[in-house]
């Protein structure tokens, strides 16, 4: 029984069904990665877990509880955090204010969480009073992840966190994500850079046209010759 799961999901944004019965699951302290070709429905599957589209069919459970009826806001309140691919920081607010917004639904003291975040992302401590819009692409991604972590989520969902950043920054981001896993958070991410992502993944889902093609541990998928040939470029 998984921590967060969406089983046999069918649905889309009103037109044709993008998801054709795929299943996505993630456990505590685990990194799950969704990979696949363009248009496979990777981001859509993640958004379905968050409730951002209406499913025709599918069972979405969080900590064993059915959350299909909840709005995205309610799911966030339950302990799921989401980092969108683009426009994922408040550009006109300072880094610290971005963190505060991440903790918007909390009414306890957030200072210890902020300290933890600063430990995890030291650069943010340095830039805490700068506007997020003035930061570099990699720094912004860190702000985005940090904002999501501020709600102390049990599941962190990342939509292509490394899109458009340089390889060095990408490695650094993956390192940070591994560190986040150490704190016991379940991490689910969609990635274009399949090879690197599967390296750090405990579990990988290869989606094709809205269906699960391969599901296994990251290492096993990397070793699977068919996966290598079809999705990882040899």
């Amino acid at each position: 029984m998984s921590f967060l799961s969406g089983v046999d999901m069918i649905g889309g944004y009103g037109g044709a069904d993008i998801l054709q019965g795929c299943t996505i699951e993630v456990n505590e302290g685990e990194i799950a990665v969704i990979v696949g070709p363009n248009g496979a429905g990777k981001s859509t599957a993640m958004k379905a877990l968050l409730g951002m589209l209406e499913l025709k069919q599918g069972d979405i459970r969080f900590r064993g509880k059915d959350i299909s009826g909840l709005t995205p806001q309610d799911r966030i309140a339950e302990g799921i955090a989401f980092v969108p691919q683009t426009n994922n920081v408040f550009t006109s607010m300072t880094v610290y204010e971005n963190l505060e917004m991440g903790a918007f639904l909390r009414d306890d003291d957030i200072s210890t969480t902020v300290e933890q975040i600063y430990e995890l992302f030291p650069i943010l401590a340095e830039k805490r009073d700068q506007l997020a819009g003035e930061l570099s692409g990699g720094q912004r991604q860190q702000v985005a992840v940090a904002r999501a972590l501020m709600s102390q989520p049990e599941v962190l969902m990342l939509d292509e966190p490394t899109a458009g950043v340089s390889p060095i920054v990408m490695d650094e981001l993956f390192d940070r994500i591994l560190e986040v896993r150490q704190t016991g958070v379940a991490i689910l991410m969609v990635e274009q850079n399949a090879r690197q992502a599967l390296h750090i993944a405990d579990r990988g889902f290869v989606l094709v046209i809205g269906e699960n093609r391969h599901t296994d541990t990251g290492a096993a998928l990397l070793a699977d010759p068919e996966v290598r040939r079809s999705f990882l470029g040899g």
Partner: peptide
């Protein structure tokens, strides 16, 4: 969108 995701 991000404000909504933050629970505003």
């Amino acid at each position: 969108d991000l404000a909504l995701l933050s629970g505003v």
